[in-house]
Design a protein around this nucleic acid. Sequence first.
RNA 1: GGUUGUGUAGCUCAAUUGGAUAGAGCAUCUGACUACGAAUCAGAAGGUUUAAGGUUCGACUCCUUACACGACCA
Length: 597
Amino acid sequence: MQQLEQNLKTALGAAFQNVFGTEVPAAQLVLQPTRKDFAGSFTLVTFPFTKSLGKGPEQIGQAVGEWLVANEPAVKGFNVVKGFLNLEIADAQWLAVFEQLRQLPADAPVATGGPQNVVVEYSSPNTNKPLHLGHLRNNFLGYSVAEILKATGATVTKANLVNDRGIHICKSMLAYQQYGHGETPQSAGIKGDHLAGKYYVLFEKHYREQIKQLEAEGVATDVAKRKAPMMLEAQDMLLKWEANDEEVVGLWKQMNGWVYEGFDETYKNIGVDFDKFYYESQTYLLGKERVEEGLQKGVFFKKEDGSVWVDLQAEGLDEKLLLRADGTSVYITQDLGTAELKYQDFHYDLSVYVIADEQNYHMQVLKAVLAKLGKPYADAIYHLSYGMVDLPSGKMKSREGTVVDADELVREVVEAAKQATLEKGKIEGLSEEEAAQLFHMLGLGALKYYLLKVDPKKRMLFNPEESVSLEGHTGPFIQYSHARISSILRKAAEQGVGVDASLTSLSELHDTEREMIQELGRYAAVVAEAARAQSPALVAQYAYDVAKAYNRFYTEVPIFIEPDAAKKAFRVALSAQTARAIKNSMGLLGIQVPERM
RNA sequence: GGUUGUGUAGCUCAAUUGGAUAGAGCAUCUGACUACGAAUCAGAAGGUUUAAGGUUCGACUCCUUACACGACCA
């Protein structure tokens, strides 16, 4: 379709040349799809030309339109409404567009001239508690952005930076030491990440009790928080960990092992994957080296207490701590090391960090610090900042126990999909295993689509009832359209209707057929824009538009009843092409589509 | 206090990046399964795009100010 648009632009240029005798810069010839309520397929806005031509917008549209109809075979007709020139395209052109789409391999990359070598870091969990709803948005976004970039022909590495060290990890370790009695995931029958989370919560509970007690003894709150015995013990544990204390490191390895097993299960269950894992325990030392490098280069400075800082006021930021007085690292120290390591490993020209928007400032600092160090990859860093997920009851707070657990949520959406599917009673003949796979596909489709259809940078509201809904603007709506088409294709195969019929004998297209082709033709442009904006929401919207357009076509145009064999074959081919577009675009979102449901 | 993001129908979200009468879904109401899958389709109703100015042929979009909510930095 790009070619059709290009041809139209060339013709428009010629029209201006011939009618008004002036050259119009190609950049000014912007075509947009015509709004549904007007006749035509492409629209040129003529207002911008009124000044230079000294003529009214209608007059220009009329003249250009007439010239096009007389001289450009692709333009069948036109109408002018105020400053809008609507072009009607000849059906032969649409069929040519369709033919081109059909010839394209299903996995043909969409060339964009964008970055070729990309690392997308996402998920990046803490190893002290299980994944929750917020992580799901992160995981689905990261996976989808990676897939979209792959679709533009880029080489993409999916990376996961595991936050496996620090005081928060020690908290769950300490609580386990004190209250665990040697419990294991096996003995407790609890997933490893949930077991660690249980002890993290236990730590918080006892810690808070200790604070209360100290306060009752007249200690000020902030002092109580620092001096509570459990906090002191956790800090002591962190020091021991950094000193490679055998017992502490042993416990750390054991508990992290449990957590990784739990994460693996969850990742598998939600259908995301990674090519490379990084662990902060392995990058923080490299980060310290970078801090040292900065000191030597004179871009960082040391305060009297020995802590290391960077002055970013020239960049519109503040002074920022890079290394504590006691020499222990802070978040940014580790991030410096990880960025360096990632670059050594992959020499990316784009490094995407999928991180919540509460880290906006932190990521600005990271970029600025790397720039100060003169790192060539500083510019390649891009923070894909996404908004928090709120609940109808308000904000999610792990400390207040108002988080929505990822595993539990997935179970619920799959169960809801199962109930709805069984009610419809349309899946007879599927084995038990196939049915289970289908329920999983539909439940996850609903959940993923729900989280991905919203613009990433916006904060969003998670409504549990809507998230399991299967009707309207949802994943299952699109999945249903695919299942429906699959059914048609099965029937076509039975009846021996080929999809490779010649299109040349077709006379006139139905409106919905024309719209369908135009919709299918947008695919490449949508993927390119989604990659540029790093927004799966655009792909989600597109998949919905395609399904919607098909359903309209489906109710208005007969397929198997059609007596004209050429038309019948074309409609089957159009259906097959639509199924492909749905499967592709949903695939970019990490959502699978069924043959029946 | 400083920086920054958001504000669109009762609710959840769009709006091709400055273009036409601001579109979808949910909820409400009406109609369509003896032609191919009704998880569908067709239609009704629902809007002073937070407010006030400004730029423009044209503003949800850009600028200024104010208000509300959030995040971050102290």
